[in-house]
Amino acid sequence: MTESFEKVQLITIEDDEQHQRIDNYLIRVLKGVPKSKIYRILRKGEVRVNKKRVKPEYKLQAQDQLRLPPIRLETPVAADIDSSRIEYLEQAIIYEDERLIVLNKPSGIAVHGGSGLKFGVIEGLRVLRPNAPFLELVHRLDRETSGCLLIAKKRSALRHLHEQLRNNQVDKIYHALVIGAWPEHRGKVKAPLFKNTLQSGERMVQVNDAGKPSETRYRVLATFARSTLVEAKPITGRTHQIRVHCLHAGHAIACDSKYGDAEFDKSIKALGCNRLCLHAAQIRFMHPKTEQQVTFFAPYDDKLTNLLETNKNAL
């Protein structure tokens, strides 16, 4: 799709796109086009399916021939997206095929825009891959967390991967630098997590018996004088789970603005690392096409590498 959709577009609906209402399909495909304009062109009959007018509730079928009229936008879709960030995302792609993208998400970039953010990973990828008819997040990472992130390029791949997530068939492994000496014998934290949304819209999570059952398994990777590098494997997938479980264990993650230790964070920032020290280092799942298990690794960024390799004696 072009940014301004200025030309007539002819689209053949694929098998994994069928059974969607046409209005929902157009809202997803015509990124940046106001919903009011989408419903207007449907109402006027400018959108045709198999050369016929259709109503917004029409459900698309495989091999439907969809004709979209020229649509001119007042503001280009990518006008507010920094080109340097787009280039950074291109370099962050670990793997890509016709069904999915594995990205080493940079710290500080949200997975999608919203809540005052104009730019996110998904918006950037849609600019990088303007001809991709389908790009959707398989799962999420916190804005300040870096590492392995899956994006589906087909609806069938999204369904396949979501089923794996529901069946606990996707293994995610994180690395976290935490304050203090994590005990070697402490292999897991089981504590219910309760999510609370403040009036500002900010999400805060705490250990509370009223919360949902949550479990994270841990393994010590490296021990330093004042901190520990741990491997964290979430068994459940709750919001801020690893961060809050680390805090609950008495070992907050370095540079965690929500759940961290201010004095410890100050010393870490003095070493040149001002980002959350949590990284999705590895992900393992069944490829939606081959049904074979695949594993991907995401290297640390420069700040984490410098902190853990160059400044480890100060940790």
Rank of each mutant, 00 (worst) to 15 (best):
E123L: 05
L315R: 09
T197E: 13
G32V: 08
W182C: 01
L315N: 10
L60Y: 00
N167G: 11
L165Q: 06
V170T: 05
L10T: 01
Q292L: 11
Q241S: 07
R203I: 12
G116F: 00
K153R: 13
N168L: 10
T236F: 14
A252S: 11
I27D: 03
L100H: 05
R67S: 05
K52E: 07
K118D: 14
L117K: 14
E215F: 00
H240W: 10
F119R: 13
Y218I: 04
D80V: 06
R166L: 15
L304F: 11
Y25W: 05
E123K: 01
C273V: 09
A225S: 15
I13C: 03
S227H: 06
V127H: 04
A92D: 05
G187A: 00
S257Y: 03
D142N: 02
A252K: 02
H251F: 09
W182I: 02
H19K: 12
Y259Q: 02
R159M: 14
R72Q: 13
G113M: 02
I86N: 01
L30A: 03
T75S: 13
N50I: 00
E163I: 03
R166P: 15
N208L: 08
A232V: 05
L66N: 04
A92V: 06
V205K: 04
K37T: 07
T290D: 13
D256N: 01
R186M: 07
L278G: 04
H19S: 11
H287G: 08
L125W: 08
K172F: 09
V178R: 03
T12I: 06
E98P: 15
D15Y: 10
Q164K: 09
A270I: 06
I93Y: 12
Q91E: 15
I11V: 05
R143A: 05
A191H: 05
V29K: 12
A210Y: 08
D82Q: 14
R219A: 12
L60A: 04
D261A: 06
P192K: 02
A262Y: 08
K118M: 08
T197N: 09
D16I: 04
S84A: 15
I41Y: 12
H112V: 03
A222E: 10
L308A: 10
S156F: 04
L271S: 09
C148S: 07
P34C: 07
H245L: 02
A79H: 14
D265S: 12
F5R: 01
N24V: 06
K258Q: 08
R72G: 05
H162C: 05
A181F: 03
T295N: 11
A191M: 01
K7S: 04
D82M: 13
N167H: 14
T290H: 11
H245K: 08
H279R: 07
V33I: 10
E291L: 09
K172N: 08
A92G: 08
S84G: 14
G32Y: 07
E57T: 09
